[in-house]
């Protein structure tokens, strides 16, 4: 945790559940917390991309108001609450909505054990979807020779959209529709993945937090039960993965228009 990290002298701090979190000007609450070794549950946030603020799983209370920690600028003397039973319950309900809206059949999913939605649900002790499931009809796209798209699992985080647009420069994915009918689409006249320039080494292939974008013929190379979040909870995996990495420092963000 934070006391193992060298404390940069002279940085402003805010309080997260009573812990002093140093931050660089320009960092968000989420970025500073992760860098200091404190996990806040999240799904649409990815440290390599601009914060999106859509899933709201990272909701915290700042000076008594609920805000998304991934889009809230860190500021001196903020009093941030995160690990409270009220916020855990709120996050749990949001995650249950995601399970309710899609078709999340973990036992037959190639991503089970590596899935962030599942791992965050474990972290929040989600035992059921609670609400009455919708069971939407979302056909697969298996047209691409190397990639399978299973839209049943999509949680609309837009990470593949952001990666394909900002890193790969291909704009393969987009969202269409509004409200409960909002869904991921493939940006091709035919609507088929085979008619895009998506390649297996694209960034868009590696950012999906769930199991929508699957490399074919790889699904069960690692057996269920021996995967990332089978070994350790996502809070530990995330913090140890990010340890020592600066997240969202101003010098890393040159040229992204901010």
């Amino acid at each position: 945790m934070s006391d193992k990290l060298p404390q940069p002298a002279g940085l402003p701090i805010f309080l997260l559940d009573g812990h002093e979190i140093p931050f660089q000007p320009g960092q968000t609450v989420m970025q500073a917390a992760l860098e200091a070794g404190f996990y806040i549950p999240h799904l649409c946030f990815h440290e390599e991309f601009k914060p999106h603020g859509s899933c709201k799983v990272c909701t915290v209370k700042v000076n008594g108001r609920t805000v998304a920690s991934c889009t809230t600028a860190a500021a001196a003397d903020l009093d941030v609450e995160s690990e409270t039973s009220e916020l855990r319950d709120l996050r749990k309900t949001l995650v249950q909505f995601l399970f309710t809206e899609g078709n999340h059949f973990c036992p037959s999913c190639e991503q089970s054990g590596n899935c962030k939605l599942q791992a965050v649900a474990y972290e929040l002790d989600v035992l059921s979807a609670h609400f009455n499931p919708i069971f939407p009809d979302r056909p697969l796209d298996a047209s691409h020779p190397d990639v399978l798209l299973d839209f049943n699992r999509c949680i609309l985080c837009e990470l593949c959209i952001r990666a394909s647009s900002e890193v790969d420069g291909k704009d393969v994915f987009a969202l269409a529709g509004r409200g409960i009918t909002k869904h991921l689409i493939v940006n091709a006249e035919s609507g088929r993945l085979a008619d895009t320039k998506l390649a297996v080494n694209d960034k868009a292939m590696s950012v999906c937090p769930v199991g929508v974008i699957q490399r074919k013929r790889r699904g069960f190379a690692v057996p269920i039960g021996q995967r990332t979040y089978d070994q350790k909870p996502i809070s530990e995996v995330t913090i140890s993965r990010l340890q020592g990495h600066p997240i969202g420092h101003a010098e890393d963000q040159e040229g992204d228009g901010r």
């Binding site: 399970f99 059949f105 973990c106 979807a129 499931p133 069971f135 939407p136 979302r138």
Partner: peptide, 17 residues
């Protein structure tokens, strides 16, 4: 409710569409 099918419908529910 014990198991994936009782909790969420499970494999049999994959006929729901």
């Amino acid at each position: 409710a014990m198991g994936a099918c009782a909790v969420g419908g499970g494999l049999p529910a994959q006929r729901n569409h």
